[in-house]
Computed example of a mutant assay.
Amino acid sequence: MDERLIVTASPHIRDKATTQGLMGDVLISLLPCVVAATLIFGFRALMVIVVTTAACVAFEYLYCRLLHKKIPISDLSACVTGVILGMNMPANMPFWICIVGAFVAIVITKQLFGGLGYNFANPALVGRIVLFLGFAGRMTAYVYPKGTADAISSATVLAETVDKSSVSLVDMLIGIRGGVLGETCAIAILIGLAYLLIRRVINISIPASMILTIFILSLIAEGGSVHNALVEVMSGGLLFGAVFMATDYVTSPFNAKGRIIYGIFIGVVAFAIRRFGSMNEGVSYAILLGNLLTPWFNEWSHQIPLGFTKPKKEKKAAPAADGKGGAQ
């Protein structure tokens, strides 16, 4: 019998992609960032990533074991969360704080809401924000690459005291500056982005709309200086967040129009926090707000079914008249 004639419930178009395969591709795309962080900050940086990843896997295993649930560590999603969480920390982060962040990401943000596919926000993102709120001093105690003057590598390039016109774009591309592990080397992030696009793991719409929004707004705010606008784009966690965090399948819109609106929204909020807020960086908070509003972005941008026509309103029938010329 011809299988094409079998009528079944949707979805009718299926793909061979699996969660394990997709997460594996994300891990491969993160490798350039891991290598770059290790080369720039030393072996301690690699140990931070190893600890957060191991803790995330352990917490997922223990939680599911205690609740007699199917153990999903083979899908590699906990590994991805651990690596991304580690890349959001400075190289000198105490290991016990790394473990606290892993607990928040896996147990509180992911498993308590039902596991993979049910989390309200990116688990690594929530872990980072909680650690920043609880251990702000540790999260901003950046380690600088050897041979880099502290005067150039101040707390952040985004600080108001830093003259952006004096910042080298080459140094920012290579990663010769202080910061958390994943936000320093722009080249490594772009290599990861290229791999994800080639493998069709993510769509370019979210990273492009986020980065272009920040670039255009910065260009206007910086009086038309392309150099300063590029510094804004390559500073902080914008590139890393746009590629590896805002593109999370569960917490981002599912169609092209919604993804573009989502990316623009995050870009505007991040720029507003950077420019007018009390913090130098606001990408994490902007992505979190975008995650929370994703159901509305999906609703505003839902696709109109093929052949759909809006039903016409029926006209109300006129009241019947009685024999005396009046309405009954």
Rank of each mutant, 00 (worst) to 15 (best):
M210F: 15
P311H: 09
A17I: 04
V283D: 09
A321V: 03
K70M: 06
I206T: 07
S218H: 04
E281Y: 07
I28L: 14
I6K: 15
A55E: 10
L293A: 06
V83P: 04
I204R: 14
L219H: 05
I152T: 08
A54V: 01
I49F: 12
G323W: 15
G182I: 07
V180H: 08
I49H: 13
A242L: 02
L306K: 13
F240K: 04
V268M: 13
P305F: 13
L22S: 07
I191D: 01
A320P: 01
N88C: 13
L197R: 15
L212W: 13
T109E: 10
I220D: 14
Y144T: 04
I84Y: 03
R4N: 11
Y63M: 02
S168N: 06
G224F: 13
L46M: 14
A229Y: 06
G178A: 03
A36G: 01
L39H: 10
L85M: 07
K16C: 02
A246R: 07
M234W: 02
V48S: 09
E232Q: 15
E299I: 04
L158N: 09
D2Y: 15
Y63P: 01
I40P: 01
L158F: 07
N92S: 10
S252L: 09
T213G: 08
C56M: 12
S235E: 04
L39F: 15
F297P: 01
T140D: 13
H302I: 06
S166C: 11
L46A: 15
V107H: 06
L238S: 08
L239W: 12
G115F: 10
K312H: 10
W296S: 00
F59W: 11
H302T: 05
E160W: 10
L116I: 15
W296T: 00
A229K: 06
T38V: 10
A256P: 05
V57P: 04
D171L: 05
I6M: 09
K310E: 11
A272F: 15
G147N: 13
L116H: 08
D171P: 01
L31A: 13
K110E: 00
A78N: 04
L27K: 03
S225C: 07
N203P: 01
R14I: 00
S29M: 03
V283Y: 11
R199T: 13
I214P: 04
A159E: 11
D171Y: 09
N88R: 05
V107M: 02
R259W: 09
W296N: 00
G179I: 02
L133A: 06
I28M: 09
G82H: 07
C64M: 10
A208V: 08
D248H: 10
A188F: 11
T213F: 14
I97P: 05
A188H: 12
A91R: 08
W96Y: 11
I152G: 02
T161H: 14
V243L: 06
I220E: 15
